[in-house]
Design a protein around this nucleic acid. Structure first.
Lengths: 205, 205
DNA sequence: ATAGTTTGTCACTGGTCAGTGACTTTTGTT
DNA sequence: AACAAAAGTCACTGACCAGTGACAAACTAT
């Protein structure tokens, strides 16, 4: 092997991503990483000072969520006018994006079992994204009185995350089939419907 | 130790529950179970034919969810009249109950990583409970047209499960503090509000 | 070119794990 | 009392794991 420290470090970092995406965090150990990278494990200790520091470094390179920029960078391209439209748009985009991100899903699974360098980093960026989204939404229209929009968002996002994580393991949940686009279609409609009903001002009792 | 096969089997099963509740499924191995039960591990193979069969047996003794009976056994004791009231009542009871069930939570975590004897059993009972609930709700009032109540329920239940599992590991989610009763209060209100808005017939446009 | 440092290889320790075979002790049956 | 089956003990294998120390090869600065 060519003696190239930078290259070796890159291979190790890449191996972390590949293992996470393909086999999950369960099998993410020093030995497995070294094997995957085709590198001696002692280099992990030498270059990264152990697994925790390696994970921290991996986290920093992270690109685990879409950004507000990518979401609404060009507002005019999005067909949404009302607060309801925007919130629906953001949540469905978030869901679609999450489904594509194997690594992010894996870190979210991890987060349910223990906190570590990776999950903390991910959680921080996620919360920031949610905060930005809420601020953005506020600019699109006043939140209805008496509705705790952050709490409602938390419930819906939590639901989306759970369904996404679970769908990778089990086909169905509560009788809904998540192996078919129809199942996801029902969830999308349900989300849209919930947002619409909940955010709409109730002028008549 | 007294030579009592039945007693020994009971100790082993009890050890599974204790380990699950206290240390999670990660540490649930043959060695750990035998150690916890104060029993030689070879007996696990002799009496249960290995870990998978032991888990299956553990699952059958299961009492992992509340039953419809316990929920609405005495309907007159519940202050709920409308469909909305009932659905809110069921979901909040479900949430409160889940928070108390360490073993169930642990199996739900497990379910997000892999399927096994325990998670399959749990999922089956859970789905049956949800089905019964929906049937019960239907007896309390027609579902509003154009609303996919099962899908909406799935989203809300998924959200509740995710928030419950996550709260055991991290204090906050999207800025909401789940270590305080106030945080959970906000979630409860949000759920009630979502159900109310979504199920309510919209007579005025 | 030579000395020192960096890069990478290798072999090892001590620990945990699942699983098995051989053993002793108790119990119940005849 | 004798014997067989059941209950429980013990010691071991082979595999994997994290982490470390000793070493060889290559590059660099003098």
């Amino acid at each position: 092997m060519a003696r190239d420290k930078a290259e070796t470090k890159a291979r190790i970092l890449a191996a972390v991503g590949k293992l996470l995406a393909e086999s999950g965090f369960k099998s993410l150990g020093v030995n497995a990483i070294a094997r995957e990278a085709g590198v001696d494990k002692v280099l992990i200790y030498r270059y990264f000072d152990g697994l925790p520091m390696l994970l921290r470094q991996f986290a920093q390179a992270g690109d685990y969520w879409l950004t507000m920029e990518a979401l609404v960078g060009d507002e005019s391209a999005v067909e949404a006018s009302t607060l309801t439209d925007w919130m629906t748009y953001l949540l469905l985009e978030f869901m679609g994006d999450l489904q594509e991100r194997s690594i992010t899903q894996e870190i979210l699974r991890w987060e349910l079992l223990e906190g570590n360098e990776l999950t903390n980093e991910l959680a921080q960026v996620r919360d920031q994204l949610a905060l930005d989204s809420l601020k953005f939404l506020k600019s699109k229209g006043e939140f209805p009185e008496g509705q705790d929009v952050p709490a409602i968002s938390a419930v819906l996002i939590a639901g989306v995350v759970y369904l996404t994580l679970r769908a990778k393991i089990h086909r169905t949940f509560l009788g809904i089939d998540f192996s078919s686009p129809q199942g996801w279609q029902r969830i999308e409609s349900a989300l849209a419907s919930i947002i619409q009903s909940t955010l709409q001002e109730q002028e008549c009792s």
